[in-house]
Amino acid sequence: MKANGYYNHPRFPLEAGCGLIEEDSIAFTSDSGKTTETPSFPLEIFPKAIRDIIEALEEYENYNVDFTAASFLTVFAAAMGNTWSVRFMTGWISRPIIYMVLVGSPSCGKTPPLQQAVAPLLKLDGEYDMTYCKEMETYRRWERMSAKQRERHSLPEEMKMPKRKCHVVVDSTVEALIGALRDNPRGVLIYKDEIDSLLSNFNRYNGSDEGYFLSLFSGTPFKYSRKSNNEHIFLANPYCSIIGSTQPGRLDEQFGGKRMMNGFSSRFLKVYPEIDKMPSWNDTAMPDGVLEEWERIIRKV
């Protein structure tokens, strides 16, 4: 470990293949001392229907397979949320919580596959918002009525304020995230095109922000108190995945130093493929139904 706090690891050198720094080499040295090629994303983990979509996006849209597959994996996991878990042994239960960051130089094609992967969840959230607005309109109308008016319109004496249902959270404050987790026990996905907009705000208003995300990765229960309104929130099974992108030159600042020592950096899967040329336009049209199939899969999940 270097004393200057640079992102480093005693077993692996700082190579582009490890997602650490920007270099021409894509090889890294294993424990045996042998030099191997940087592995690409193992597409065989996906069922054929998803593999076909990823390969079609590569063929017709020139999407990088590693960026697309990593984005699809994270979004699929977020769609599952708390509905599935794995018990490795008594007391050791894990859920599909993923912290993912796509690493590459500007204009290398990180954003399009990320946007494509998240699109079905955002579309669902748009539908949820329409329902929420209607429910809030009904609630506000009920709130303005007197007891006699409610009785006259056959409305209940008590009515709970509607909760905003969502899959994706873009507000990076811990307070907003905790509220979303409370209202969505199935879980949420933090989606940041630039992950720095999340990391740079850590500890700005609350010195324990980073600690919350360390705990969230394990899905361990925790309590949160909002001093503003004296509200106490208990999350028994918090689920939160994270996905975003960054540039190679920002890795040391974002994941080095203390964040490497306390395990924060290790929680993030860093996808840093070797890209020898920037993606270009493709005149061949995408076959009908490819993107619709991805949306159908996510809605089913």
Rank of each mutant, 00 (worst) to 15 (best):
Y132L: 08
I195R: 00
S107P: 04
N201Q: 11
G126P: 15
L122I: 07
H153M: 15
I178W: 00
Y132A: 14
K134R: 12
S94Q: 13
V170P: 02
I195S: 00
E137Y: 15
E143K: 15
I98V: 12
T173Y: 03
Q149I: 06
G179D: 08
L122C: 13
I93E: 01
D209T: 03
V118M: 01
I190V: 12
T90I: 09
S172R: 01
L122H: 10
G104E: 02
E151N: 11
I190M: 05
Y191Q: 02
M161L: 02
E151V: 05
I97V: 11
S208V: 12
R150M: 05
I97H: 04
F213W: 10
S200T: 08
A147R: 13
R140A: 09
E194N: 02
R164W: 11
S197V: 10
P185F: 01
D125H: 11
V188T: 03
S85I: 06
T131F: 13
S154I: 12
V101H: 00
R150I: 00
D129T: 13
D125T: 07
D193N: 12
K148M: 09
P120N: 11
G179S: 08
T83Y: 08
P185V: 01
Y128S: 11
T111I: 02
S172H: 05
W92R: 11
H167L: 10
R144K: 15
C166A: 08
V174F: 01
M100G: 10
K165N: 08
Y139I: 01
D171A: 04
G187M: 06
D193L: 05
S215N: 15
H167A: 07
I178E: 10
G126C: 09
S208E: 09
L189Q: 03
S172T: 10
S85A: 09
